[in-house]
Every structure is written in C-alpha cells, then in structure tokens.
Nucleic acid binder design. Structure first.
Length: 811
DNA sequence: CTGGCATCTACA
DNA sequence: GTGTAGATG
C-alpha cells in the first residue's frame, strides 16, 4: 500500500466483477461517507465518488485472505510480548489479561520503581468523563481523600465495596498505560494502528474498545456501568447482537441492557433458560466470568466457497475440481502451520450444501486423517460426500450429480503435536517461531516447544498488598472458582441452599451495615450522610459472592451452615475472600486492529482528515508545578482537603473502619478457637479448595494458583509482624512500622496507610505534568470534536491550577 | 442467482 | 463423538 492512500476513503472488496464486488472492510474515511460492509462496490461508489476499492487477491479461483491472517499474526506477535495470557479472538482482535503486570505496578507505585507516564494516556478516554485528565483528577482526589465521594458514586455502590471500586479505578488507569505501551509497540513495529478497551472483563473491554475509534483507547470504570447500561442497546453486547439478542428484547420487552436489571435471575431463567438467564443476569451487572483463555493459534484451518445460481456444481468432474482446489489451499496452510507449530491435523471435515427439491440442505461429515496432502484430502472429501448422499449420481450416467451443490467447505482440525522434527529445516522454523512467541500451554495436547523461555522474571517478593487489592481480586477469584466448577460433572441441586442461605446472609449484611450507619450517624449529629441506606443499594461484590457461594454448597453444607451463627458465615466468607489472592483477569484489554486504516511501515503522516481532528497523539508533556492545599489526618496521615465537611466525613470513616475490623477480629478469634478444638483436616485451607475447583479450567489459572502465597490473608494486616517490634503493639491493638514514613501505624490501618502513600506519590507526579497538544491546522471541526475542545478549554481556564489540566488542549 | 468467507461455540 | 445452527468480524 502506498502512502497516497493514507487518509483517503478506501474499502476492500472481493470478487468485483458483479456490481463492484462485495465489501468486506471499510476504512474510517470511507465510513464517514456511509460506506459499510456488505455493500457492493458500486453502492459504495455512489456514496463516495472517490473511494478506492482494493481487491482481495484471487488464488485458485477463489478469494485468498492469507494476507489478512498474516497481518493479524504479525500484530499478535507484538501483543504476545506483553502477556502470556493472550487470546486471539479473531483475525484482528485479541484479549490481553494484564492483571499480573497491573499487580506488579501497583506495588512498584508504592516503592517508586514505577510511575504513571501521562504521555501514555494522551489518546485515552474514560466512559463518563469529558477527558482523561478529569478521570485522573478524580482518582487522585479520592485516594488522597478517600471518603468524600460524589453522590452518584455513593449510590452506585455499597459502602463495603467503595474501597474496592476506588482501587479498581487506579488499576484501570495502570491498565490503560499498559495498553498505551502495547499500542505504541504495535504501531512502531508493524505500522498498524489499533484501538483498545480497558476494563475488568472481556465483555466490558470489548464494549469499551468500540467507543472511541480509530487509534484510541477507552477505560470503562466500574462506577460508570449502571449509567452506561441504562441507554445501551442490548445488541451492543457481544453475544447479543443476533437472534438471541432479539429474543431477549422481545421476551423481556426491553431495549436497553439496564432494563434487564428489573428481572430477578430466576425470572430470567424462566423466560430464557437456566444458562442464558444466569449469564444475562450477570452481564446486566457488568459481570462476565469468561477468562482470557490463552490461545495464539486457531483450532482448525479451513476454507470454503459458494457456488450460487448458475455456478451450482452439477457434474462429478467439477466437484472433483473444486475439492481439489480447496484441498490445495488447506494443504498450503497446513504445511506452513506445521513449520511454525510442529503439529498435525488428525481430522478433516467436509461441509456442503445441496439443492434438493428446491430446498437448500446442508450437511457436514468428518473423518480421521493420517496424511493431508492435496490428493488424499480431495479423495476423502469426495468419499464422504458420496457415501452420505442417497443417490449421488443421476441415474443413467456416471458424471451428473443428482443434487446440485451450492456450497463446499473443507477444514481440518484436532491437531496433535508431531512426534519429532521431521527434518532440520522444519526444526529450524519451529524453533524460530517458538522463540518468537513463547507460547504458553495453549492446548493440553500441544506441548511447549523446547526452546520456550519465559522472559518474565519471578516477581519480587510480594510486599504487603493493600486490603483493597485483595478484596477486589479475591472477590473475582471466588466467582471464578464457582464458574469453573460448572464444567465439572453435575453437582447436587442447590434447592435448599439457594433458598435459605442468601436470605440468612443478607440479613447479616443488613444488620452489619445498619450498625455502621447507626454508629456513624450517632457521632455526627445526623448532619452528613456517610452511608447510603441499605435498601437503596446492594453490595456489588458481596451480593454476588453470597449467591455463588450458596450455589456452591451442597444441601448438606447448607444445613450445617444454618446451624452456625450468622456472623460466622460472614467472617468465614470474608476470610476466604482475603485468604486467596488468586488470579483473575483483573484488567482485560481488547485490542482491535484496523488493517483497513492502518499505516504501513515506513509511511509518513499525511494531511489530516476530519476524523483526525480528535487525535490527541501529538500531545507532549510539559512540566509545571502546583499542588492542592491539604491538611493531614492525625489518625492515618491522609491528606484531606481543608474543609469542614471533608474532615468530618473522613473521621467517620475511621470510626466505621475500626468497628468493622473489630467485629471481624472478634469473630476470627472465635473461629480460631473452634478450629483448634476440632480436627484440622478440611476447614483449614480455602486456597486449596479454590485450586481444586478451578482445576478443570485450562487457563493459566493453575500457575497463578500455585504462586499464591499461603500466608496471604488479612491476618497479615491485622497481626503484628513478628520481625518488627512496635512499641505499643498488643494483640488487641497491633502496630506496624511503615517503611515509607518510618512511623508506627496501627496494623488495621496499614493497608490504607500504604494506599495513602501511593496516592500521594501519584498525585505529586501527575500534578507536575501538563500535556499540551500541538495546534493542528484548523479545518472543519465536527460538532462533537468542537464540544470536546470547548470543554477542554473550560477545564483549563476554570481549574487553572488543577490536575484537570492534564491532557486538556490548550494553545 | 449474488450477503463472502473463516472461525468458534453451544447444543442436541 | 458427531453434526448443525448461530454469532461475529
């Protein structure tokens, strides 16, 4: 492709003799003119006079898309360097689970080994925010002053979840910086540009990725989910874009995803079915339990061709010809695959559509294969068709088919690793390919090439993780374990457990919350609401966990639990949550490559088109200094804005926090005593239980679980460290030494204390950076772009000394 | 006659 | 294990 195409309207067509060919890809300049996929080339010409139509090359009389496969692989090779947990979702999309990198950077943020680099966020957007600077501002303010949240935030989440949600925002920001690095690497090394979505699971990441294009990335914060879903058409969610989505809308009488919240899970299960009801119930809450399944190569290789109308295959010779052509392509691709992956297909499938009595009848037949040369494949395919068609040939001849064939497809799969390298050339290729991409255990039956060498060093000895991190992560881990279990053989019906346990637990949480509220309200004379009444909202994580846990239990266990005190359930649950710092995809990114618009290597930028107006990629960081005036909380040292309301709210927090820790400590000690009395076989180790239930999931979970440190429980935060001897540390009031500020801090407050240090650092860094965008040659600005610019200007003038200046466009 | 082709997943 | 329909890009 030449640079003269840069920015000009362009589309890719295949088979262009008839009406200009079918469009299979459209660049953004052409999209702006209304050109879409599925149009014919001629229609596109009508809409966009100067559109450039590129043809997909024809090989063997059919479209050959290998160029696009190769381009996708080239990009995927770059992506692979950033995580082992890479799932290629299609030829130009991939999911990256960057949880481990985020974890590492969270720690490094505290030690100063890592700092957020705002220039990585210049073309980043965040759902619900006018610009990324606003989002960053919110995060830093919350961390420095965690207990003053806006009403919307407070209403969206349960009090107990707020810390987790707060930390999630910082994690997403780090995720976005990683995405920025990834995309920069893709651009630098391949010339292709791509967009990305950064969120806590695949569904959300995919959704977010589509919100700002091209060449942009979008964060979807947890707190924005309810608002977004209120007006999000159901069909926008992956998996709901087709017939099923329509069924959902019709049977529920809804248009937007948020409307699904009105239905209980049971209702959804009744109206749809068990599985879909459960799935939709979670999706409507932004929960998607699908893990990023590492997969670099597809499970099958296939090709097909339609023979519409007059092109129907009616003769044996023609059929043999096309089977031979398809086999030839398969064979080529298979040879290449063998070189790279040292695997061989063990099964072939032939699909075909016949016209029988004017009706299209499709069939597919499979057979095991030992060889996959062209002739063998073609022959076997023909055999399969013959033997599965009642009257294959027309009576009275030996070449006319009884039923015309309208479609032929041939694919091979069920790959197995070749026993050993067949020759030195093959070995060399295999090794090179392996070096390049270091495939993780993708398939059970595909062995890692011997040369595979993980570059990731074992992470540094885990420092004390913040309570928030564990809370959020573990919550997801728990959910995941339950999900994985569904793949195991049928479990006992949850009947009893489902009905009673959640109710019981719910009351516990309600009581607990009420206590907190009463306590805080009593102290503050009822002036400032610190917690939303329980009936207004439910605990996002806790509720989900409760539900899943109930399902997880056999009736027997449920009965046993009913005997125990409510509080025991709660504490056990919290302990379990905190005990496992197991893996989950914390931050998922989807990268959406855009071959049609992308620039090739060596290409230079060209005159900007309309859509390039909103590009922020010319931004560069400039230093400036300013800080917001804060006062210090005597209790925890946190910086709080110097106003009465903020101070009051902050003190309320400490009170609530102490109460909550106190309750849990008491229960924990009680449990401990019980445990000592009882035999210590089964109850001791929640993490091992997770390992067991997760076993069937063949993601990287096994490795992560193995890494889980046994002592990674909340008790670590609550009990004094044996090594450090704080002055007044007692079992009831343990203290620890903060490495950061050399002060002794109550152990209960240590996690937040560390968060405070991190927040302070973050804010300092970010406050010192101001990004300025180079003034682009002014052309017509789209209404939305104009609005954005206006807002940016407003931001930069009103908050002249504020952090919102990041990334805002000033001149 | 013309909405192409490739790939994956769920489910019966 | 096998064949089919649906979803998606």
């Amino acid at each position: 492709m030449k640079q003269r195409y840069q920015g000009k309207p362009l589309a890719v067509v295949q088979y262009n003799p008839w009406r200009g060919g079918g469009i299979i890809a459209v660049n953004y300049a052409a999209r702006a003119k209304g050109v879409t996929r599925h149009m014919r080339g001629d229609e596109a010409k009508e809409l966009c006079h100067d559109i450039i139509l590129c043809k997909v090359p024809n090989i063997r009389e059919k479209a050959d898309t290998s160029k696009y496969r190769d381009a996708g692989k080239e990009v995927a090779n770059v992506l692979q360097r950033f995580t082992q947990k890479l799932e290629r979702a299609s030829v130009d999309e991939a999911y990256l689970d960057v949880t481990e990198t985020v974890n590492k950077r969270m720690e490094q943020l505290q030690t100063g080994e890592y700092t957020l680099k705002p220039q990585e966020l210049v073309n980043t957007f965040s759902v619900g925010y006018e610009c990324i600077g606003e989002y960053v501002n919110k995060i830093t303010n919350r961390f420095a002053n965690p207990y003053v949240d806006d009403a919307r935030f407070m209403l969206s989440y349960d009090h107990n979840d707020l810390p987790a949600v707060r930390q999630s925002d910082l994690r997403l920001l780090i995720g976005a910086s990683i995405a920025g690095e990834v995309r920069a690497a893709v651009k630098a090394e391949t010339g292709y540009e791509c967009s990305a979505g950064i969120a806590h699971n695949k569904i959300l990441a995919k959704l977010a990725a589509g919100m700002n294009k091209p060449n942009k990335q979008t964060i979807l914060p947890l707190a924005e989910i309810p608002g977004l879903f209120d007006t999000l058409p159901v069909g926008k969610i992956k998996g709901l874009g087709g017939k099923f989505g329509e069924t959902v809308c019709e049977t529920l009488g809804v248009k937007f995803l948020g409307q699904v919240l009105k239905f209980s899970e049971a209702e959804l299960q009744r109206k749809l079915d068990d599985k879909n009801g459960n799935w939709l119930h979670l999706i409507a809450r932004g929960i998607d339990l699908e893990a990023v399944t590492p997969r670099f190569y597809s499970k099958s290789i296939g090709c097909c061709k339609k023979f519409p109308g007059r092109n129907n295959i009616t003769g044996l010779k023609t059929l043999e010809h096309w089977l031979s052509e398809l086999s030839s392509e398969i064979n080529d691709r298979l040879e290449k695959d063998f070189m790279e992956n040292n695997r061989k297909a063990k099964q072939m499938v032939v699909q075909y559509v016949q016209e029988i009595d004017g009706e299209e009848v499709s069939s597919s037949r499979s057979a095991p294969i030992t060889q996959c040369d062209q002739e063998t494949l073609a022959k076997q395919a023909l055999e399969l068709i013959k033997t599965n068609t009642k009257t294959f040939l027309r009576a009275g001849g030996d070449s006319a088919l009884n039923n015309a064939i309208r479609f032929l497809g041939l694919s091979v799969g069920k790959f197995e690793t070749a026993s050993n390298a067949q020759n030195s050339l093959q070995a060399m290729f295999a090794n090179q390919a392996a070096k390049k991409r270091r495939i993780s255990a993708e398939e059970d039956h595909v062995e890692k090439p011997a040369v595979v060498e993980p570059k990731a060093k074992p992470s540094e000895a885990a420092k004390m993780k913040s309570f928030f991190a564990n809370y959020l992560q573990a919550g997801k881990a728990e959910a995941k374990a339950v999900e994985a279990e569904k793949e195991l053989p049928p479990k006992p019906a949850p009947s009893e457990a489902e009905a009673t346990v959640p109710a019981a637990k719910k009351s516990v949480f309600e009581t607990y919350k009420r206590k907190l509220i009463e306590a805080t309200v009593a102290e503050e004379n009822g002036e400032i609401p610190t917690s939303t009444p329980p009936e207004l909202k439910e605990s996002f994580f806790a509720n989900y966990l409760k539900l899943q846990k109930a399902k997880d239990q056999t009736s027997e266990e449920a009965a046993a639990n009913e005997d125990s005190a409510d509080m025991n359930d709660l504490v056990a649950e919290l302990d379990e949550i905190e005990a496992s710092s197991a893996k989950v995809e914390e931050n998922t990114e989807i990268l959406d490559m855009q071959p049609s618009t992308s620039k090739r290597k060596l290409e230079q930028e060209s005159p900007s088109q309309d859509y390039t107006k909103s590009y922020a990629e010319y931004a560069q960081p400039v230093l400036s200094t300013d800080l917001i005036t804060m006062v210090k909380c005597e209790e925890c040292g946190a910086q709080i804005p110097d106003d009465l309301k903020a101070l009051q709210t902050h003190r309320d927090h400490h009170f609530a926090q102490q109460l909550s820790h106190q309750i849990r400590n008491e229960r924990r000690e009680e449990m401990q005593r019980k445990r000592l009395n009882a035999s210590t076989t089964s109850t001791s180790s929640p993490p091992s239980k997770l390992t067991a239930t997760k076993k069937s999931k063949k993601t990287a979970s096994t490795t992560s679980v193995a890494k889980t440190k046994p002592g990674n429980s909340i008790t670590k935060f609550l009990a004094a460290k044996p090594s450090s001897e704080p002055p007044a540390s007692t079992s009831s009031n343990p203290m620890e030494h903060c490495a950061e500020c050399k002060k002794y801090i109550k152990s209960v407050d240590m996690p937040e204390h560390l968060d405070y240090h991190m927040a302070k650092k973050l804010q300092r860094e970010l406050n010192q950076l101001q990004v300025r965008t180079i003034n682009l040659p002014s052309k017509k600005v789209s209404p939305t772009a104009a609005k954005k610019q206006l807002n940016s200007t407003l931001n930069s003038t009103t908050g002249s000394k504020s952090i919102t200046q990041f990334f805002t466009q000033t001149n």
